[in-house]
Nucleic acid binder design. Structure first.
Length: 140
RNA sequence: GCAGGCGAACAGGCGAUCGCUGGCGCGGGGUCCUCGGACCCCGCGCGGGAGGAAAGUCCGAGCUCCGCAGGGCAUGGUGCCGGGUAACGCCCGGUGAGGGUGACCUCGAGGACAGUGCAACAGAAAGCAAACCGCCGGUCGGCGCGGCCCUCGGGUCUCGCCUCCCCGGUAAGGGUGAAAAGGUGGAGUAAGAGCCCACCGCGACCACGGCAACGCGGUCGGCAUGGCAAACCCCACCCGGAGCAAGGCCACAUAGGGAGGCGUUCGCGCCCGCUUCGGCGAGCGCGUGAAGGGUUGCCCGCCCGAGCCUCCGGGUAGGCUGCUCGAGGCGCGCGGCGACGCGCGCCCUAGAGGAAUGACCGCCGCCGGAGCGAGGGCGACCGCGCUCCGGCACAGAACUCGGCUUACGGUCUCCUGCGACC
RNA sequence: CGGGGCGUAGCGCAGCCUGGUUAGCGCAUCAGACUGGGGGUCUGAGGGUCGGUGGUUCGAAUCCACUCGCCCCGA
């Protein structure tokens, strides 16, 4: 498995949420929900062996195509620089709010930093639960 | 210098670092395998990676499918003329009308003697003629001057003035309106009127110029063709429908699920089985007929046709392809007033798919503000240099082109008007 | 990609097709009356760039073109 490579500040296809059902699962039944000033973080547990994946949602409420692209790029950049924060086995779906279009990268990083403690706590909890679940019926 | 018009090109630049993506090359791993290879994943390297509007989706096409793509009607669209183009509702050049002192700009600009309709309020009257006030004439009546007669009361005649009603003439004037059947001037008359005349306008005809729209000139007609077709409509021309979630290939999955409805004709030939030798049944072919379906609004025609239609329920919404070389760009030459066409040469210029083309830092550039410094001017102030701060538009490809429309930043060529100076 | 609808007073709507007289209705607002006061009822009043810009017309909320914003449906 190539996921054994040390985590770098890259964001290849395998580390992005790319299927509609995955987005729907995160939005309808998230395992954790964390609110920042200009975005909303949704966490949902997946296969513990898989790397953390990012998915960004920027609706028309954010603005036109330029603003929505800007919002998604900012969030991807912030996630890319803080991948270690989320560990593995989790889908991170971020919903952008309209204020995000006017935000700078420094501001987004600061907002993410403010949530860092709670993110670490939640992801660790999810990892423990997943480990227990896989230890039992994994023999089948 | 200020104000404005037409057009053109551009869309901040350079460097460093960290990323994304498709192409090529090398290396590693995996799947399939006809052992040649194909496909997928990962890493490294190289070079590519938004627009003039990528936008709105208002038109026109290419492309793909709809079994074939025929005729008519309806609907819809276009609407001065000629040209350009693959095509257009676009563009170019003209014509006409309108706007601007001008450079220039704007225009849905066919038809109102084919028909139907509309015009509030006001006004006499709103479409075919008519006449409210007014003006003029007349009858009757009244008053007056004069003449004649006379029974001195008056009667009668001519003329003048006044006048309700009535009869007739008139459409110049008044008034209403967006609009009242040509306009101005004269002549004329009882008053008036294209009744007549001149000019203008309008219409018809003729001649000339122009491919044409139309222009120009002449002659004639006294002038009974009002407005609205972005009201219905008429005329001419155009138009089959859907859209890359089109369409193709592969993989996976459910299982021929339930309910209701309409149908499954007839003849001939061949052949098989049974036969009480009369026939009966099954199959194939040809013809015919039929529920229903296709022809994407309707009809005709054509085609499919033993199954079809409706509702409920269930499953899949993964990969590859279409996907970027095209009515393609750029340059030069030739033809054309121009849109554009022709020829030659050069170039390959994004192809994503929860959706890339980015983030951040430094330097430079442009604009605005503040401060400091030296300078010019009596002065308000002016330009120069440095430092700091802020800003640098509108906006993001989703099959691809040609247009239109809208959004938006500064720059420049040429041109116009006004002002000042030489 | 394709199709449809809406925008009129603070709020919810009519009027638009078939152009015309003062753009109408309900709630809300304000004033007055009834009541000792509140509520409620009655009477009266105010409040409109008809989303925007052009055009057609004598005249436009209404017709036409462009445009802005919002909503819905189908694949």
């Amino acid at each position: 498995m190539t996921a054994a490579r040390p985590a770098t500040a890259r964001l290849p296809r395998a580390e992005r949420v790319r299927k509609r059902p995955d987005f729907v699962r995160a939005q309808t039944s998230p395992d954790a929900r964390l609110r920042a000033q200009s975005f909303l973080l949704l966490l949902v547990a997946t296969d513990p062996a898989a790397p953390a994946r990012l998915g960004v949602v920027a609706s028309k409420k954010v603005g036109g195509a330029v603003e929505r692209n800007r919002a998604k790029r900012l969030l991807r950049e912030a996630f890319r620089r803080n991948k270690a924060l989320f560990g593995a086995g989790v889908d991170v779906v971020v919903i952008a709010y309209p204020e995000l279009a006017a935000q700078s990268l420094g501001g987004v990083l600061a907002e993410l930093e403010a949530l860092a403690g709670r993110i670490r706590q939640k992801t660790a909890e999810l990892a423990r639960r997943a480990a227990r679940r896989h230890a039992g019926p994994a023999a089948s």
